[in-house]
């Protein structure tokens, strides 16, 4: 009898220990890229801090830009009893669509995308980056003295394009005279070309710059060197050059990860698409003091306009 009690306690203890919610995430770049991957990594760390390391564990595979390797990772994790597997990159959707049906008891999430493939074990998530793009555009147009603003983008698709499109509309809505020059450098990795693009924007008269994706670190350096203002997106880029970064749109994925985790715990494995927005706080506009009162006020007005629906960041 005594032995039975002991073993029951042990079993319970084991069950208790296994209760931690286990997440695995695959990401295309490094966890400290100051951009897309970092935003997810930081969000998972924040959740872990909140829930406690005993209740929330996560494993990751960073730098997995080879789509096929990501597919292998997802399949491997799926067969290992993780509660939630996150494919953090829109290029991972294609393999996920093939894998998810083979593991109906495992929950998957992928982004940035809005499509769950009609599967009830897949969540989709995306960022309304056009909203922060719009706000950054408003700030840029308010602060620009020359009336010329430069944008350095990676490839003309997805999250980056959404941000840039919103930015252009925000800037011209604030000041129709303002000229927004856009340059896509054709990759997410060419720091040298992104830097030269920033130089070119400066030569062309731009005094405010912005850009999306991880290769902008060099462009921020140009802005710093030449005393131009910089507007960041995805993660906070302020610490790279505190004196010239005036605002960042910071992605906080905890806002959508929490409800997803709750749903998975409750047994609902997918079928919903989430968006982080200014309204639900997933997009956090971090406006620094060097933006000045005018720009800050204009930005606040734009934020509340977007939230109450009176402003459409992508136009009508």
């Amino acid at each position: 009898m005594k032995r039975l009690v002991v073993s029951l306690c042990l079993l319970l203890g084991l069950a208790w220990a296994q209760d931690a919610f286990k997440v695995a995430v695959v990401m295309p770049s490094a966890t400290n890229d100051l951009a897309f991957s970092e935003s997810m990594y930081d969000s998972l760390l924040a959740i872990q801090e909140e829930m406690g390391a005993d209740n929330f564990e996560f494993d990751y595979a960073d730098g997995t830009f080879v789509v096929d390797d990501a597919a292998a990772a997802i399949r491997d994790w799926a067969s290992q009893g993780y509660d939630l597997i996150i494919a953090h990159g829109s290029q991972y959707g294609a393999p996920l669509q093939e894998i998810a049906p083979d593991f109906p008891d495992v929950s998957f999430a992928w982004g940035t995308a809005g499509d769950t493939f009609g599967m009830d074990n897949v969540y989709a998530y995306e960022a309304a980056s056009d909203q922060g793009g719009y706000v950054n555009g408003v700030i840029a147009a308010t602060l620009s003295k020359s009336g010329i603003i430069g944008v350095v983008g990676p490839i003309e698709v997805g999250d980056a394009k959404l941000y840039v499109d919103g930015f252009k509309i925000g800037a011209t809505a604030t000041n129709p005279e303002v000229q927004v020059n856009v340059n896509y450098i054709g990759s997410f990795g060419d720091v040298a070309l992104a830097t030269e693009a920033a130089n070119t924007h400066a030569e062309a008269g731009a005094d405010v710059l912005t850009g999306s994706a991880q290769m902008v670190v060099g462009a921020i350096g140009v802005a710093k060197e030449r005393g131009l203002l910089w507007l960041g997106t995805q993660a906070s880029q302020t610490e790279l050059a505190p004196e010239i970064v005036v605002a960042n749109q910071v992605y906080d994925w905890t806002v959508i990860l929490k409800p997803i985790i709750e749903q998975v715990k409750a047994g609902k494995l997918g079928g919903e698409a989430y968006v982080i927005t200014l309204e639900n706080g997933g997009l956090d506009m971090e406006i620094n003091d060097n933006a000045g009162a005018d720009a800050k006020a204009a930005a606040e007005a734009a934020i509340s306009g977007i939230i109450d629906g009176s402003i459409a960041p992508l136009g009508e």
Binding site: F65, A94, I155, F188
Partner: peptide, 13 residues
């Protein structure tokens, strides 16, 4: 394998 083409902007992807 992939049954479609998707690009992340690099060849290695």
């Amino acid at each position: 394998l992939s049954h479609r083409m998707v690009t992340d902007g690099t060849a290695a992807g």
